[in-house]
Write a protein that binds this DNA or RNA. Structure first.
Lengths: 218, 218
DNA sequence: CGCTATCAACCAACTGGTTGTATAATTATT
DNA sequence: AATAATTATACAACCAGTTGGTTGATAGCG
């Protein structure tokens, strides 16, 4: 038909496997974060992605496998950001402060990450344990902490014999608990712990506590 | 029948509402901690209590109300123990150390408390918010922390302007995260974080970090 | 003291809706 | 025309909650 030459603006294809798959992963992330694995509903995930529910099985095999892929995705995300954290040129104290600040801010912005981790721990971390991809995703931050600790000790600004993994867990825990439990804590203390002001105040507190906590004893 | 005088050891009653009710609460606590509200099954709770499932509705109205009562119970438990913590005669540093140690040990011994709190936060703390009993259950430890902080400042051993609620959250968070996420953390770090040795080491780390973190700047 | 009536504690079975998964068919794309 | 992407529908099991019935405990009475 000469009336209709190939149009420069093509209609997007009606079918795009990669796009559908991603939509399902995104919707699943929201659903699993909101309801956990047991409470999440496959038909809600599919509806959230705008596709037929059977595609969950087509692309992912089942609810459980979809959950694992979501987990792998969120871990990969934070690891990517952690790798971009450039602590190399910083003095030890500034490095630890930057790292604690990053950790804090990430958790503040990703309540879905926290919810997913909580749910996964509630299930004995069986998806993490069963994953072939997650073991490789150690956080690069532990090595950075170790290096900063060593430098700090050599420079006489940090006390000796602090374990890098324990410190990593401490730093993460200080922020994680605040955001993980913000609802019950707000309720119990009658404080608006989710307000910008409260969060900023607690952020300062965390960094101060950690840096002071690492200082050399008098 | 003169052959059978009233026996000194009476048979226990076959029916005991209080006992059945308690068995249901105990079984529910286990089930909700293991599976969360969405994943818990009413028939499993009843089976765990050794009674007919319909008694859940009889005694508690429904699954949701049972969950709320379980929550109220675990909060009451820790509050009772907190009130018995006698920090009055202790120097500020020893008081904070004792408090951090108690908090750590309680969480180490009560993974069910952690699981329940995580689940409740995942649901927006709606049971806590809807409870008529929980608002009265503020932790007495915040006042104790406040007092210790003030004393420490007056004695010149603690730095000024540390917020008692923020410190309470920090202390709780340092232990909570470790136990809440022990499965994923163990998997990710390839460390046996649930071993006695690792727990003891981290406990020391936490108390040191907090006490050092509160110290007066040089 | 024994008997009876009452009732709360408890049980068994049912119900209607939900759920993850499977099967068959349709349709868009190349 | 072939095939992968997608849809529609079916299915058996599950699930919180409901309904109807049984039974153990006890108060009251003669």
């Amino acid at each position: 038909m000469a009336d209709h030459p190939a149009a420069p603006d093509r209609h997007p294809p009606r079918r795009d496997a990669a796009s559908s798959r991603k939509a399902l992963l995104d919707a699943a992330r929201r659903e699993f974060a909101a309801h956990g694995l047991a409470g999440a509903r496959v038909d809600r995930i599919a509806a959230g992605a705008g596709v037929n529910k059977q595609l969950v099985y087509h692309y992912f095999g089942g609810k459980d496998d979809l959950y694992r892929e979501v987990l792998e995705g969120v871990y990969a995300e934070i690891r990517t950001l952690e790798m971009r954290l450039d602590l190399d040129g910083l003095p030890p104290q500034a490095a630890i402060a930057k790292l604690a600040g990053f950790s804090f801010d990430y958790l503040a912005r990703h309540p879905d990450f926290i919810a997913l981790l909580n749910d996964e721990n509630a299930q004995g971390a069986r998806h993490v344990a069963g994953s072939t991809r997650l073991p490789e995703m150690n956080s690069p931050l532990v090595a950075a902490i170790d290096l900063s600790l060593r430098r700090g000790v050599a420079e006489g600004v940090f006390r000796d014999r602090v374990d890098a993994v324990e410190l990593y867990i401490s730093i993460a825990g200080l922020a994680y608990f605040y955001f993980s439990n913000r609802r019950t804590l707000s309720s119990i203390f009658g404080r608006k712990l989710e307000s910008r002001r409260a969060i900023a105040s607690y952020r300062r507190h965390v960094i101060e506590l950690v840096l002071n906590g690492l200082r050399v004893a008098p």
